[in-house]
Design a protein around this nucleic acid. Sequence first.
DNA 1: CGGCATCCAAAGCGATACTG
DNA 2: CAGTATCGCTTTGGATGCCG
Lengths: 132, 132
Amino acid sequence: MYQRKIPKEFYCTVDYALDIFGGKWKPRLLCIIANDEPIRYQKLKEQMENISDTALADSLKELQNAGIVKRHQFNEMPLRVEYSLTAKGETLIPVLNKISAWAIQNSSSSIYQGKHFKQIHQKAFQTKKNGD
Amino acid sequence: MYQRKIPKEFYCTVDYALDIFGGKWKPRLLCIIANDEPIRYQKLKEQMENISDTALADSLKELQNAGIVKRHQFNEMPLRVEYSLTAKGETLIPVLNKISAWAIQNSSSSIYQGKHFKQIHQKAFQTKKNGD
DNA sequence: CGGCATCCAAAGCGATACTG
DNA sequence: CAGTATCGCTTTGGATGCCG
C-alpha cells in the first residue's frame, strides 16, 4: 500500500465522494461486485481483465476502509475470500446509475463499441442488480 | 498539455462520465463556474485558491473539448475571457447534486470542518444556481 | 490579462518475486 | 488461493519564465 507524502484535501462534497468510488478501478470494481456478489478474489480479477494484484488489492482495501465493501474469509484449504457490498455500498448504486444515465445520454454512441464496455455496462448500472 | 503514451480505455459508463467531470480539479471547477457564471480566468483561479495556471488551463480546455464549458473572449485591452456552462454542462448539475447528496449523508461530519469545503459546497451543488 | 513551454518532484500503477 | 514487497516506468501537476 502506497503511503502519500502530502495529505489529500477535499474542497467540495463531490471531491469527497469521488475519492471513495472514483478513480481508475473502483467504478468498474463496484459494478462487478454489485452484479455478482458475493464474488471471490480470482473471479473479480478475471472480470477486471487487465488489473494487477497490486491495484486490485489496494482498491479493495480502500473500499473496505470506506465501508463500501465487506470481505468474508473462509478458513478452508485452499483459502477462500468473498467480497460483497455493505448496506452503505448499496446506497451507492442509485448514484452510480445516475452518473451512468448521464453518460449514456450525453456521449457519442461510438464509445459503446468496445465489447467490455457494453458487457459491464449492461450488467451493472443500467439495471439495478437483479439478485444474480 | 501532456500527451499520453498509453491511450485511455473505458470499461463502463461511469468511467466515461468521470473522465469528463471527475479528477482532482474539475468537480470544484464546475462547482465554481455553475455558481458564478460567467466568470473570468483570474477570478476562477482565486476561487480555486491553490491551482496552478498549468492545471487550470488544462482542466478548462478538457471541459471545453467535452462541450461542458464555453469560453468567450473579449478582445479588449487588457484581455478579458469569460467562462460559463453550455447547455450540456447544465445537465451535469443534477448529477453532481446527486453525488453531493450521497457524500453528505454518508460521511462523518468531521469532513465539513475545512472552511473551503463548506463554502463551495453550499454555493454550488446544494442549491441549483440561483441566477447569480 | 490569459494563458503556454519547460522542467522536475510526487503519485499511480504493472511486473515480478515472494508469503501465510 | 489470496494476497504483499519491491522496483521502475507512466502520468500528474506545481514553479518558473515567456508571449500575444
